[in-house]
């Protein structure tokens, strides 16, 4: 059976529970036979009944409990059932969890992982479809990560659970779960290079293509759409792009994006959250500051500044899609009028 993002994350949770008896899982409805709303914790409570804890519907309380557990040497992993509910725990994340290490002068560490599925395109409507990580980006002391189907999403979370000393908000786009992991070495159409560090970036280019004239930068499920769009840009329009897929959003490390955009001179940043004050705005600001005298043309693609509608026609129009990426690529390279 092919590994999917879901099976990779699920195996990683099993492995982490097995590797270290300080690891605990907390969440709503995570026990078997249900195994969590998206099944990421399936089997964990059967294999480790004492370390998988069913929580009341108390997102803030649960993050607080996990923070206290971590201060006393445990390594809790909290599941927030829908990313939309992470705002309930905002005070815990911002005023407690992320603060303790710094404000206590590095005398403590708080290794809590908060995993949560974000994202729309499933018709769940305004409060079960959002992409809210932008509200936590830039919170000092908080690392934000997002797996994709590139590389090893399970390895990413396993490493975070076992090795982190600081809190991590781990954003899992819902549409990634059923996707098979990418063939990193033998893909006939794409060359994929990993930076091989603990939160790798992936450089994706069309196999055998001339040097790229445009850089696409994104994370999570948008990387899937970007990869499809770059294929069509190459084969239908002879516009060659390089796609940078990030797995760590904060703290910002944009060296891979800067390197690529410095060569291509054109950058499109893409996210599923609402446009205004989003991740992409900060990426472009930082790239502009770091690019020196070199001019880089930039464009943002993001969800329109409305709540996510339930109706599929409206929802599709709200989020940036493959066609939007192609259009932006053609406009930025002068192949199509604005």
């Amino acid at each position: 059976m092919t590994d999917t993002v879901l099976s990779s994350l699920n195996s990683a949770l099993h492995q982490a529970l097995s590797a270290n008896d300080k690891v605990y899982l907390l969440g709503e409805d995570i026990l078997d036979p249900y195994g969590g709303a998206f099944k990421v914790t399936r089997g964990c409570s059967t294999a480790f009944p004492n370390r998988v804890i069913a929580s009341p519907i108390s997102e803030a309380g649960m993050v607080g409990i996990a923070t206290g557990m971590a201060l006393r040497g445990l390594r809790p992993v909290v599941e927030i059932m829908f990313g939309d509910f992470v705002t309930l725990a905002a005070d815990q994340i911002i005023n407690h969890l992320s603060k303790f290490r710094w404000m206590y002068n590095d005398q403590v560490c708080v290794p809590v992982i908060i995993r949560t599925p974000m994202g729309g395109r499933r018709g769940y409507g305004p409060t079960h479809s959002q992409t809210l990580e932008k509200f936590f980006l830039g919170t000092p002391g908080l690392r934000i990560m997002a797996p994709t189907s590139f590389g090893d999403p399970g390895g990413l979370i396993f490493d975070a659970i076992i090795n982190t000393e600081d809190p991590v908000l781990f954003i899992e786009n819902k549409l990634l779960y059923p996707l098979p992991l990418k063939n990193m070495l033998g893909d006939p159409d794409f060359d994929i290079i990993s930076t091989m560090d603990e939160a790798p970036s992936y450089y994706v280019s069309i196999h055998g293509a001339p040097s790229a004239s445009i850089t696409l930068a994104t994370y999570g499920y948008m990387a899937e759409l970007a990869q499809k769009a770059m294929y069509r840009l190459a084969y239908e329009y002879e516009v060659f792009a390089e796609l940078i897929v990030l797995t760590q959003l904060a703290p910002f490390n944009l060296s891979s994006v800067l390197e690529s955009a410095s060569h291509t001179g054109r950058l499109i940043v893409m996210e599923e959250g609402n446009l205004t004050m989003g991740w992409g705005a900060e990426v472009i600001a930082r790239i502009a500051e770091a690019s020196g005298s070199k001019s880089i043309q930039a464009r943002r693609l993001a969800a329109k500044d409305y709540s996510v509608p339930a109706s599929s026609l409206l929802e599709t129009a709200l989020f940036p899609g493959e066609q939007d990426i192609i259009r932006a690529g053609l406009q930025l390279t002068g192949k199509q009028k604005e």
């Binding site: 309380g61 409990i65 923070t67 206290g68 201060l71 040497g73 005023n95 407690h96 603060k99």
Partner: peptide, 24 residues
């Protein structure tokens, strides 16, 4: 000894500490 300046939020953290002591 620990203290923090946001009132209610302290309470689940302290509770989590006690929970950890029990689990350990």
């Amino acid at each position: 000894f620990y203290s923090n300046g946001v009132q209610g939020g302290i309470v689940p953290v302290a509770t989590g500490m006690a929970f950890a002591e029990k689990l350990l």
